[in-house]
Design a protein around this nucleic acid. Structure first.
Lengths: 146, 146
DNA sequence: TCCTTGTAGACAACTTGGTTGACCATATCG
DNA sequence: CGATATGGTCAACCAAGTTGTCTACAAGGA
């Protein structure tokens, strides 16, 4: 029997691949997981590039690159920081918020698909088991660089 | 509730991190997942660099780099192909086989740890559910580049 | 046999997504 | 006010892959 590690990795990959397949079908830019992480972060609070860097667990330079891409693609825009003239806030555009809704819907679809296959009650049990494992091992935040 | 995708990714990462922690403790070279894949492949059959490339799902050049590292670190060695003067077989050294045993033991330990946390019967169910999902989505082989 | 076509492996240049280091302008604290 | 810390940018580097090219050998006809 295959080790759990493999099964976890493969399942994650399977879902991720299906996600990106559909992304490509819709003709969207090739967004990476890190971008999704940025969107979700920005949806909750205003943040500077440095805030994003901290949240993503990368250097500010790496975060700046990501922000640059997203600005070019019109998913986010920079606006002046009200009190700190060095800093700039990064905020979601309408396109950015639309993408986030779209992505959330798709993840939900994929999870629903899984529920159909293994049964909703098994899915629930599975999620609970994984959460208990994570709780025990003390992993609560995950860098989006996988 | 967090989406399954996140939970799968985080659980995989948690196990992987624990694995590499222990690797580092033992003072071994910083082997990546791809290396483990190579070992497991070589343990079963003799293979050329090209065979490995196909198995790993990367170009032969990328496979050649990996083989070079492993040769430097004395985990594998090259020997002439008996019938094809172009090709070379890559075979595990004793050090390579030792590593493989060590790694297998550690993965088993980590799985045992998970069994303790969520219960052996839940672990079993979880693995079965994931397998059913993978079966359904048609993912049977996974490239080690995650 | 020879000749064409295919393939294993090496070498080099490029790409991607990160890193470190240096710097400027502005903030902040004693 | 002055020393020190911090946000953002620029530039150089690195790691792990890619594509493209080349050589030597293999293999299957004509």
């Amino acid at each position: 029997m295959e080790p759990v590690t493999m099964l976890l990795a493969m399942s994650y990959r399977a879902m991720g691949d299906r996600f990106h397949e559909r992304l490509a079908q819709v003709g969207l830019e090739p967004l990476r997981p890190a971008h999704g992480y940025v969107f979700r972060f920005l949806a909750e609070k205003r943040a500077t590039a440095q805030d994003l860097a901290t949240h993503l667990g990368v250097t500010k330079q790496a975060a700046a690159k990501i922000v640059n891409e997203l600005v070019e693609w019109r998913y986010v825009l920079r606006e002046p920081h009200p009190t700190d003239k060095r800093a700039q806030y990064v905020t979601l555009t309408t396109k950015g918020r639309d993408y986030l809704r779209f992505a959330d819907g798709m993840w939900a679809d994929l999870e629903g698909e899984m529920a159909e296959i293994i049964g909703p009650e098994r899915l629930d049990a599975l999620k609970n088991d994984l959460k208990r494992y994570l709780d025990h091992t003390g992993v609560h935040h995950l860098r989006p660089v996988w």
